[in-house]
Write a protein that binds this DNA or RNA. Structure first.
Lengths: 155, 155
DNA sequence: TTACGTGCAAATAATTTGCAGTCCC
DNA sequence: GGGACTGCAAATTATTTGCACGTAA
């Protein structure tokens, strides 16, 4: 492994599909061995229905409640982890205790606005990481995180 | 900003000094406006006395207790954050709720062994990140994290 | 029907905070 | 001596778990 750019990255699982979104979602879930329950379909709809997103469990829970899909916070956590295990989401570690989940499942890069706790995708950039070192014996690289931390410019 | 390699990175604050280590430590603290209390000197000693390290608050607390420097976990947290604010440490976000503190304060790169929660410096490597994108208007890039996640090789 | 899911509330884990007592300058 | 520092315990925050009940296949 030596080189990788943002352009190589796979897109999110949902955008690869066509046809009836709800039907596709159910298929997605079944393929992963997950029953397409009301909650999972609703959360999947919120997550994959509008392009790439970054959410915390708490924010997704708020959204679901607003969308009149009452679901417990615990189930949101369960579902996010099931989706992650299934490969529909990727967990992004940025700082502190908050876990962010990203619908763009490939290795890719982020801006992180420290003061707002906001994650921003770096898309279609020429950003390149080269000369990756060999992993230690018996290990393999399973992912790469690149986070550029932002702050308001001092003036 | 376009290019940056591990070789450009500054070393840790402590290794830049010479002479009596304890004296230097106290100087370091005073310079940062921190009183050189017993606990802070002891923690500084543990942190900067043996080259670059990565610690969690909990591990450092264990070490301090073993080294017969009883200090409360709360004070360890306080001290780690004070050192970070002063620029002696850098916080590394890798995953979950754990915060790692690194005595190497420059932007640099890590391996992270997911199963063991272990951080490994990538030192003296040719790893290069180029073509960094411009930050959004009014923002500036204040740091970069690159984490390569490792797992035991499947065989 | 029946195993898988869900919701709730309680349990954990990591970290922070309030405050009374202690220590450096 | 006085404000900065520390330790303890309680409070927060983010997340997980146990278990009775509900529901998709």
């Amino acid at each position: 492994m030596t080189m990788m750019t943002a352009k190589d990255m796979p897109r999110s699982a949902a955008t690869a599909r066509t046809g009836c979104p709800v039907h596709d979602l159910k298929d997605m879930l079944r393929t992963a061995g997950l029953r397409p329950t009301r909650q999972r379909v609703a959360l999947g709809w919120l997550l994959f229905g509008k392009g790439d997103r970054h959410v915390t469990a708490e924010r997704l829970h708020e959204e679901a409640v607003k969308a009149r899909v009452p679901v417990s916070l615990a189930t949101v956590y369960n579902t996010l982890h099931q989706f992650t295990t299934a490969g529909f989401l990727r967990e992004v570690a940025v700082e502190g205790a908050k876990a962010y989940f990203d619908t763009n499942t490939g290795d890719h890069f982020h801006f992180y606005v420290e003061d707002q706790g906001q994650l921003i995708d770096i898309n279609g950039s020429d950003i390149t990481v080269s000369h990756l070192p060999e992993p230690p014996e018996g290990m393999e690289i399973v992912g790469m995180d690149v986070v550029l931390r932002l702050k308001p410019k001092a003036r």
